[in-house]
Amino acid sequence: MNYYDFLFAIEVLVGGLLSGVMYSLVAIGFVLIYKTSGVLNFAQGSMVLFAALTFVSLVERGVPFALSLLVTLAVMVALGFTIERTVLRPLVNRSPMTLFMATLGLSYIIEGAAQLIWGTQVHGLDLGIDDTPFEVGGILISSFDLLAAAIAAAMVAGLSAFFYSTRIGLTFRAVADDQFAALAVGLRLPRIWGTVWTTAGFVALVAGLLWGARLGVQFSLSLIVLKALPVLVLGGFDSILGAIVGGLIIGASEKLAEVYLGPFVGGGIEGWFAYALALVVLLVRPSGLFGQKTVERV
């Protein structure tokens, strides 16, 4: 391997890591909800779509940027509370599979509604971020990706601070640890769930803006849920750290595989490579890299 090949490999790796951060961004929304309510929220992807579509449509209608952001956030909060009220609360104490299937239905509703309200055309989303790549030691790095990564990192830091140093965060963790015990000591689960869904809505908004700016705001944005799932499987559904590391691993290996393995099998492997990788890891560690390894109580 000569020097330029090496540089190229590094460039691919860095690009992969940066897009991995974007995967993590979506995955974190899942982890939040999974940790506190045991629901694998398939609708997270459609929430991302809904947030981005709402925001971009407001901006296109001449609403100022900041106000649009605020309104969208309000809409996401309302959405989160509505979901908690109408879907989760009636299904409390039902099996995790039932809840999952409910979120599948939910994703259909949100996707349908988003497009019924705002239309199905593709919107460009300009966040005013310059996307000219710059060079570091012979490696080209997209400044947009770098900024996205920085935003994601800031959000993770913020969430961690929230989780680990506030009273609400403490109750969140108590609920995540043991729902029954939390109920027994008088924590009000519905309110906590409402808050969690709101937080997930906020995460969806951030992810929606960044992803939307990158891919354009359109229906396929909701498909990033399919990118986040292998990340979750790899990192463990209940670990924020797992979502981040999982995202990085998947982002990097996916790009490397696409470049170095793809040509041998005809390309286009990004649709399943992440899943295959996650499966291999799962076979070795059935609850993911960072998931809690528990012995089932009987």
């Binding site: 879907v87 009636p90 299904l91 409910a102 239905g105 994703s107 259909y108 509703i109 349908g112 019924l116």
Partner: peptide, 17 residues
């Protein structure tokens, strides 16, 4: 197409509940 999605999704949830 969209209303079909919405109704279908709603039906899933209603049936599950």
């Amino acid at each position: 197409d969209m209303s079909q999605r919405i109704v279908l999704g709603a039906l899933i949830i209603i049936f599950l509940i």
